[in-house]
Design a protein around this nucleic acid. Structure first.
Lengths: 230, 230
DNA sequence: AATTGTGAATTCCTTCACAGCC
DNA sequence: GGCTGTGAAGGAATTCACAATT
């Protein structure tokens, strides 16, 4: 394994590779190659190999990759051998939807608690069984529930304040859904999904159909907005 | 204006610039400069200028930019002088949350209809007043409601089928929230927000705190997963 | 004097192409 | 023969730095 910097692009692609391998494993494939993966899932084989070799030499020349082994390696690299405890701040539509979201595996990601400042929401429980605490209890609950990831689902005007609270509470990573740029301690990994920017980008392409199709890359990881770790 | 290809990165930043300008306008600022914007909002002034000059020469040398004029220009470029009619497919948690989402201006984006194949959801209405139709009525409702943007909020296994239906219904752009890569006609603008990838990227950085902070760019537009127009 | 618009330099990301190995 | 791992090439995006302009 090298000590080179791993880009956000590479990390996102690892997720995609793992997803592809899971599909292959489910259909009983035990061995594959970068070319086979590339062809089946419309990726570039050299990129797959390059991404993987940042973390080790998982393949066998002339043969390819063992599906089971590579799945396990990628799971490990992505930290999916751990259980991540998540706290959602803002128990509105989006926060509730995320608490109930079934798109990710509950053996890796668990929404442990929600928080809101609105007393009418405090004491509620999501359909999936997540309790809504008052925001003033953020710090002790983060500690007692072992929460490492905070998800900001409050309006733009409150996002920075919530980010500050999360940092103070000792969170490790933040996923921000508020349509605003927030700033945090560099030790906290911050990532944003900005729905307003996503829709406005679509708007641009809808409004300009001629130019719209010309550009665009095959793959761009992440949330509209920003990825910041400082 | 040049006929160069405009990158997805640039388009996303235009949204950010517009947002910054809106804040400046709200606080009564009438003139600004790329340096002032860069400093206040942590951007790079050369990048702002370069992004803007893809679309025209909006500034005055030695003076800067007129806030009101630049806002209007950016709104126009981003197609925000139009009203975008949106259809959401999948009236589950996420679909409902988006139908009720208040993060974008209803004078630019209107959720006109939702669709589901589950009869128990058909006939419901979101809190914001959006009716849920049966998916079999997609095509006629898309036409009658003048829907141009389709938002996929169904499980991964159904996403490709829904994408096909949307293309057949004559949609112009698709925003895909399903954690899977979908393929469409190249004439349709496709963009994905992959929450599973976003969380897995955070997982990577939570699991590897040492390396985690080293890399990462200041700004990466878009959804985890992919941006595809083909 | 100040700030834009932009060619040049730089940095980063992707793809090519092949030596090395099974 | 076939496939990996990787140096080198190519392409994109960002930033620098300055000539042009008011």
């Amino acid at each position: 394994m090298k000590t080179e910097k791993i880009s956000e692009f590479t990390v996102s692609r690892l997720s995609i590779y793992l997803r592809c391998l899971n599909l292959l494993a489910a259909s009983g494939v035990t061995t594959t190659s970068s070319q086979a993966l590339a062809q089946q899932f419309q990726l570039n084989s050299a990129q797959i190999r390059k991404d993987l070799t940042y973390f080790g030499e998982f393949g066998v020349r002339g043969v390819g990759y063992n599906v089971a082994e590579l799945r396990q390696q990628l799971s490990k690299i992505l930290g999916l051998d751990l259980i991540h405890r998540i706290g959602i701040i803002g128990a509105g539509n989006l926060g509730m939807a995320l608490a109930n979201y079934r798109g990710f595996d509950p053996s890796h990601f668990q929404v442990a608690a929600m928080f809101d400042r609105d007393l009418s929401r405090v004491g509620e429980t999501s359909r999936s069984g997540v309790y809504v605490y008052h925001i003033k209890d953020l710090k002790p609950i983060v500690a007692s529930e072992n929460i490492r990831i905070g998800v900001i689902c409050v309006p733009a005007d409150d996002a920075q304040e919530v980010a500050n609270l999360l940092v103070t509470a000792g969170i490790t990573a933040i996923l921000n859904f508020a349509p605003v740029r927030v700033h945090t301690d560099p030790k906290v990994k911050l990532k944003s999904i900005d729905l307003a920017i996503s829709f406005e980008s679509l708007s641009y392409f809808v409004a300009k159909p001629a130019q719209a199709q010309a550009e665009s890359r095959k793959f761009v990881p992440h949330a509209a907005g920003e990825i910041v770790s400082d």
